[in-house]
Nucleic acid binder design. Sequence first.
RNA 1: GGCCUGUUGGUCAAGUGGUUAAGACGUGGCCCUCUCACGGCUAAAACAGGGGUUCAACUCCCCUACAGGUCACCA
Length: 483
Amino acid sequence: MLRTRFAPSPTGYMHIGNLRTALYGYLLARRHEGAFVLRIEDTDQARLVEGAVKVIFDTLRTAGISHDEGPDVGGEYGPYVQSERKEIYLSHANELISQGKAYRCFCGKERLDTLVDKRGIAKYDKHCLGIKPEESKRKADAGEPYVIRQLIPDGETSFQDIVYGEIKVSHSDLDDMILIKSDGMPTYNFANVVDDHLMGITHVVRGNEYLSSTPKYNLLYEAFGWELPTYIHLPLINNESGEKLSKRHGDASFEDLLKEGYLPEAVVNYIALLGWSPKSDREIYSLEELCQVFDLDGLNKSPSIFDKVKLAWMNGEYFKKMDPGKFYELAEETLKNSVKAPQVDLKKVAAMVQTRINFLHEIPPIVDFIDNIPEFPPDLVVHKKMKTDIPISLENLKNAYASLETLKDYSDAAVHLRLFSLIAELGVKNSQVLWPVRTALSGKPTSPCGGTELCALLGKDETLKRIQKSIEMLEKHVQSLAR
RNA sequence: GGCCUGUUGGUCAAGUGGUUAAGACGUGGCCCUCUCACGGCUAAAACAGGGGUUCAACUCCCCUACAGGUCACCA
């Protein structure tokens, strides 16, 4: 059975790159009816962050990425938290020592520092490899602090990566990396390998920052006589400046994006398409659909840039295709805060606004005129394409007022009928009546609906009041010009 | 700096020796239309550079340039 894993370290911050790695691992497992396991890599005692594991759980849950095994749901390969597996790593490392494939290193920081070159790069000189096994054991038993290092043999390693193909490196470029730290905890490099094997991970999906250390991991697999997993290294996601996404650069985490108004479904959909392509023109996919179509073949090797502009578009797409009831539910609070007029049907407002926004926070400025119509200049009723000028607008506003004054039913259909028969009667262009009305009712150059709908939305009292006000304003303007 | 990887329009991205080099976002224009939006149509816009291999290279090889990753008792 295919088994993948997501193995984040609890930093309290889940960025988009991490989330995408989790997503692909999840999709691969789902697609092949395998298992997706969550493992917490908390071997760095110095960097423990309060509540960080919760951030991981929350992020995965809201993204809809569910794991089959993990610290919270259990499973037969647990525990799934590395700090609880300390002894496992230690015994494995000792096994390697007894086989001569790893050794204790007693070098202190001071000595290690002397190995650093002018660029700040150090390679261990295998100094402690020279210590005889019995001596090493004696020192360790005497309580001298030490780390355990992997002994890299001479030679060359090559391996296959699903997306990058064959990778070949010479062992002379590899360092005798630390497996067990002096506090007894394993390093990521070691724990990762041991756990992936012990947990039966068949496909390792991770960012390509691990591509160059993979040979070292393979040497570990080899030392233990374990079978290599299938590697799937993912191209990195960069920010607008082409840098790797990071908290330090102020790049948004999944949580941040949600706070900014992005829908989790849209974010998941968008990141699925960064570095992977369904090889079709279609771009909108639900998570379930992604589970059906995801394939390794569509994986890309070049890095991509996280583009919020396109994400914003996709967010809008999700709003547009959303069931109106669901949309109202999401928009209700925003609407109630921005529209207080009692006669206004907020469900109608929601419907008007649904195709016009990418974010909920774009709603208030669109509907603000409902409660408070702004003062507007006379010229606003002048529109070349609508074939209106001030005299025509004034005239038709008066006509519309008279016509609307006697109307009782202010439903969309009734207003529409009344105004269009007025237009027919006058023998003018639709826009010559409707544009002045729309402007008189909204006070703005644009509105989320036309003149007739505006009448119906505002109701009779408010409609007549606003038209009257515009008539007065325009008359005053005309008089001032005449003088 | 060593090693690893990458480089198709501004961005995402298809393309696996022979194509008018898709599509999407964004941008401009047009249509629809009682404004805006939606929707429809359309335009501009790309194979990093140089050498090979080949009848034929965006596709294969080499070099250069640029970019990213990595070289921690971080993961």
